[in-house]
């Protein structure tokens, strides 16, 4: 299954991926529109001593967020492999157990609504919006093995699990 791979050296912290993510999840579908709607992004460019490091959901094999989810809203789709708390019969109530559980910090509280917010993998798009937008090719949507052949070091990072 393809997933979002991160090339740490290539990321320069321009935040374009966060804008593209917000645009893809906004009503308007555009970057400027998303900024006006204040649509939150679901990928984070974190700072480590001033250096930019992208952090986003890995759609884990055994997602800690889904295990912690007490409503059943957070679930891994057995076909697509995507982990999401949206679009299911069960609804997210914003109990924040997933925030407490995710070892990557990939789930956050929606800034205005009482629901947890996370990468939904952009189902329906050929590749996630963040990947498509990255001007530095720091984000790629690839089979982990393929990526590993190119950049073994960073693939190791991506594969490493915090838990």
């Amino acid at each position: 299954m393809k997933s979002i791979m991160i090339d740490l050296d290539a990321c320069n912290g321009c935040l374009t991926c966060t804008l593209a993510c917000a645009a893809a999840h906004s009503r308007s579908g555009s970057i400027v529109g998303a900024m006006q709607e204040k649509t939150p992004a679901r990928i984070f460019i974190e700072a480590v001593n001033g250096r930019a490091v992208p952090v986003t959901c890995r759609h884990c094999e055994e997602p800690a967020c889904a295990e912690a989810c007490m409503t059943g809203a957070m679930r891994k789709d057995s076909l697509t492999g995507l982990v999401s708390n949206e679009g299911h019969e069960q609804k997210c109530v914003g109990c924040w157990m997933c925030i407490m559980a995710c070892p990557y910090g990939a789930v956050t509280a929606h800034p205005r609504e009482r629901v947890a917010l996370k990468c939904d993998g952009c189902p329906g798009l050929p590749q996630p919006a963040c990947v498509a937008a990255c001007p530095n090719r720091a984000l790629r949507y690839e089979e982990p093995a393929f990526f590993a052949a190119g950049r073994s070091r960073d693939a190791a990072c991506s594969a490493a699990q915090a838990s």
Binding site: I6, L8, E46, V48, V53, V55, Y104, G105, C157, A162
Partner: peptide, 8 residues
């Protein structure tokens, strides 16, 4: 602190 520290 964030997961980026661990990646780095």
């Amino acid at each position: 602190f964030n997961y980026g520290y661990m990646l780095a």
